[in-house]
Design a protein around this nucleic acid. Structure first.
Length: 265
DNA sequence: ATGGCCGCCCTAGGCGGA
């Protein structure tokens, strides 16, 4: 049995519903995890997604900001959401597909100033990552459960996960404090960084390019903010990973590209 | 490195993104 799972920060699911359907038609993942849906649950564009053959939809949205959803053409079971940092801001949803427990995250971006003392958004991000680490550390069946974490984790941990390591060391998403915490979350469940199994650490690998570049491909000042992790029980199961950069050039694109992984279960 | 960009919202400038 195989599982093909895609993750995509869509930056408004209603504005880009045609792009969502286009991705589903093109790649036919079993499961697509969306972030930044920016859509209350009662306005989620279920009809178009179901018409594309994705009948199973779990979502946690709110008006205007954040929001996550899991859509699938295979049954989704045991859906639930977890709140972080005492907020109800729709940054996590999980469901099980083909026996794999899938966690879809949208980690806070963290604002501009990488100092929790003066920037409460950065403090929120730090606390969020800390809570992720303690949650996973206390998880049951860590060596036996098939689990996947996907989503916009808003941290580019490795030197070649950003266009310029040196120039981004003090830029939120790539600061040493965030990278250290990111590694702590990884270690909390011995997660496997799946895309890096297929692209060596010394090669550039990005999933996000700012809207502010005139030509995102020419400047290529990207960052790898979107991640796919697999639990130790899935060691050896990952067969391929694609960063579907074509979608970054579609009309009215999201600033993130979909990342797609295929597992042999 | 910032910001020349985006999308949202009690429609228009402020907020959040990263």
């Amino acid at each position: 049995m195989s599982l093909k799972i895609a993750t995509w920060n869509i930056n408004s699911v209603r504005l880009r519903i045609e792009s969502v359907v286009r991705l589903l038609d093109h790649h036919k993942p079993d499961v697509l995890c969306l972030q930044e849906t920016k859509c209350p649950d009662d306005l989620f564009p279920e009809k178009a997604i179901k018409a594309a053959g994705y009948e199973y939809i779990e979502k946690s949205g709110q008006k205007g900001y954040h929001g996550v959803a899991i859509v699938a053409r295979v049954p989704l079971e045991k859906a639930s959401i977890k709140r972080f940092c005492g907020k109800e801001d729709c940054r996590h949803i999980q469901a099980t597909a083909k026996g794999v427990e899938i966690h879809n995250f949208y980690v806070p971006a963290g604002g501009d100033e990488p100092d929790p003392e003066i920037n409460e958004k950065f403090a929120h991000k730090i606390q969020f990552l800390e809570e992720m680490a303690s949650w996973f550390k206390n998880a049951k069946q860590k060596t036996t459960a098939k689990r996947v974490v996907v989503g916009d984790l808003n941290v580019a941990p490795l030197e070649h996960d950003v266009w310029s390591h040196k120039q981004l060391l003090k830029v939120v998403s790539h600061t040493p404090q965030e990278v250290e915490l990111f590694d702590k979350v990884l270690a909390s469940h011995k997660w496997i960084d799946v895309p890096r199994l297929f692209t060596p650490e010394e090669e550039k690998l990005f999933s996000w390019w700012s809207y502010r570049s005139k030509d995102w491909q020419a400047s290529n000042r990207g960052r790898r903010l979107d991640h796919i992790w697999a639990s130790p029980a899935m060691d050896g199961m990952a067969k391929s990973v694609t960063t579907f950069t074509d979608a970054r050039s579609w009309e009215k694109p999201s600033d993130h590209a979909p990342v797609i992984a295929e597992f042999k279960l």
